[in-house]
Simulated assay, not measured.
Amino acid sequence: MPLVDRDCARRLLESDDPDVALVFVRGECLVLPVDEIDDEHRGLVIMQRRDLPDAFVAAPISDDRVEALACRLDNAARDLGG
């Protein structure tokens, strides 16, 4: 079972705000404004939107791109010990 699902990856990718981040909190994947993430949860940030590779943000959003991003983010979450 993935820690980061396609819906969460899509929310990060579709955000118009570059200052949001995908955070894994209490078993839930959330997309939050960076300035709302407190010190206790900063270590749980998987990726900020502004740090996404250009290949993900430059082209139109497709299901394949969302799936590829979800896979990368899921791997990053597992590396954090999610």
Rank of each mutant, 00 (worst) to 15 (best):
P2F: 06
P2L: 07
L3K: 10
L3F: 13
L3Q: 08
L3H: 12
D5N: 11
R6W: 09
R6E: 13
D7T: 11
C8E: 12
C8T: 05
C8F: 01
A9T: 11
A9L: 13
R10F: 13
R10E: 14
R11A: 14
R11S: 14
L12G: 08
E14L: 14
E14V: 08
D16Q: 12
D16V: 02
D16T: 02
D17K: 10
D17R: 07
P18Q: 00
D19E: 13
D19S: 09
V20L: 01
A21S: 15
A21N: 14
V23I: 03
V23R: 13
F24P: 04
R26E: 07
R26L: 13
G27W: 03
C29P: 11
L30T: 12
P33A: 01
V34Y: 05
V34D: 00
V34G: 00
D35K: 01
D35Y: 13
D35R: 03
E36W: 14
D38N: 07
D38Q: 08
E40A: 12
E40N: 09
H41C: 07
R42I: 02
G43C: 01
G43L: 04
L44C: 03
V45T: 06
V45L: 06
I46L: 11
I46T: 09
M47H: 04
M47R: 05
Q48E: 07
Q48Y: 05
Q48D: 05
R49D: 04
R49H: 02
R49I: 07
R49S: 07
R50F: 04
R50N: 06
R50H: 05
R50A: 09
L52Q: 11
L52P: 10
P53I: 01
D54H: 05
D54L: 09
A55E: 09
A55T: 11
A55S: 10
F56A: 07
V57S: 08
V57R: 02
A58W: 10
A58H: 12
P60E: 02
P60W: 06
S62G: 15
S62I: 15
D63R: 12
D64H: 11
D64K: 06
R65I: 15
R65Y: 15
V66I: 15
E67C: 06
A68D: 15
L69Q: 03
L69R: 00
L69D: 00
C71P: 05
R72K: 02
R72M: 03
N75M: 06
R78I: 14
R78P: 02
D79T: 07
L80Q: 08
G81R: 12
G82D: 05
G82I: 05
